[in-house]
Lab assay of single mutants.
Amino acid sequence: MTFKAIINGKTLKGETTTEAVDAATAEKVFKQYFNDNGLDGEWTYDDATKTFTVTE
């Protein structure tokens, strides 16, 4: 399945996608990506659209 992340950061904005077997796996991938890029913020997840949003 394809999962999307919308990034609303102070220094980084945009979208990225990942292929994962479930939402928990996708969340781990996205959180690692955000940690690697120095992002920290509020997380939400919309199961209907398979979209994570992080707002810094």
Rank of each mutant, 00 (worst) to 15 (best):
D40F: 14
A26F: 01
E19K: 13
D40K: 13
D22V: 01
W43V: 07
F30E: 00
T2Y: 08
L12S: 08
K13R: 13
T25M: 10
T18R: 05
V21F: 11
W43K: 01
I6V: 11
L12K: 08
G9Y: 13
G9F: 15
N35W: 14
V29C: 13
G9T: 15
I6N: 03
T25K: 04
T51Q: 02
T51G: 00
Y33R: 06
I7D: 01
T55C: 05
K4N: 04
A23Q: 08
M1E: 09
W43M: 07
V54K: 02
Y33N: 04
G38R: 06
G14A: 12
L39P: 03
A48C: 08
G14H: 14
T44Q: 08
T2R: 11
T44H: 12
T16E: 05
Y33C: 11
F3C: 05
D22P: 00
F3N: 02
K13S: 11
T55V: 10
F34W: 08
K28I: 10
Q32V: 09
E42A: 09
K50Q: 09
A48I: 10
V54R: 04
G14D: 06
M1H: 12
Y45G: 01
T16R: 14
D22A: 01
L12E: 09
T18E: 02
D47G: 06
T44K: 08
K4W: 11
A20N: 02
Y33D: 01
E27M: 14
A23D: 04
E56D: 07
A24L: 10
T53M: 09
N37L: 15
N35D: 09
E56N: 06
T53A: 04
W43R: 00
N37Q: 14
T53C: 07
D22G: 01
N8S: 08
A48H: 08
T51R: 01
Q32A: 12
L12C: 15
F34L: 12
W43N: 00
A48R: 10
N35M: 14
G14R: 12
L12W: 15
Y33W: 15
D46W: 02
A5S: 03
G9L: 15
V21K: 12
M1Y: 14
D46H: 04
N8L: 14
F30C: 01
G38D: 06
L12N: 08
T11R: 08
T16S: 08
D36Q: 13
D22L: 02
Q32H: 06
E42T: 13
A5T: 04
N35F: 14
E42S: 10
E19T: 13
G9C: 14
E27C: 14
D46E: 06
E56V: 14
T25L: 05
V21H: 11
T2W: 13
T16P: 03
N35A: 14
T53F: 15
K13F: 12
G41Y: 15
T49D: 03
D22F: 03
F3T: 01
N37E: 08
K50H: 11
T2M: 13
L39N: 04
E56I: 15
L12F: 14
T18Q: 04
T2K: 12
G9K: 07
E56H: 07
E15N: 06
W43L: 06
N8G: 04
K10M: 11
T2G: 04
E27S: 05
Y45N: 00
K50M: 09
A24I: 09
D47H: 10
G38W: 09
N8Q: 12
T44G: 05
G14T: 13
D40W: 14
K13C: 15
E56W: 10
D40S: 13
G38C: 10
G38F: 11
I7R: 02
D36S: 09
K31R: 14
T16K: 12
K50I: 02
D36F: 10
D40E: 13
V54T: 02
V21Y: 07
A24F: 09
G14S: 11
A48V: 10
T18M: 10
A5F: 15
F30H: 00
L39Y: 12
F52Y: 04
T11G: 11
E27L: 15
K4H: 11
A5Q: 01
T18K: 03
Y45H: 00
E42N: 08
T55Y: 12
N37I: 15
G41K: 04
G41V: 12
A26P: 00
Q32E: 09
F52S: 00
E42K: 09
D46Q: 03
A20T: 04
E19A: 07
K10C: 14
A26R: 02
D36W: 12
T11A: 08
D47R: 06
V29L: 11
L39V: 12
F3P: 01
N35Q: 14
T11F: 13
T51D: 00
A24D: 07
Y33F: 12
K10S: 10
F52V: 01
T53E: 04
L12H: 12
F3H: 03
F52I: 00
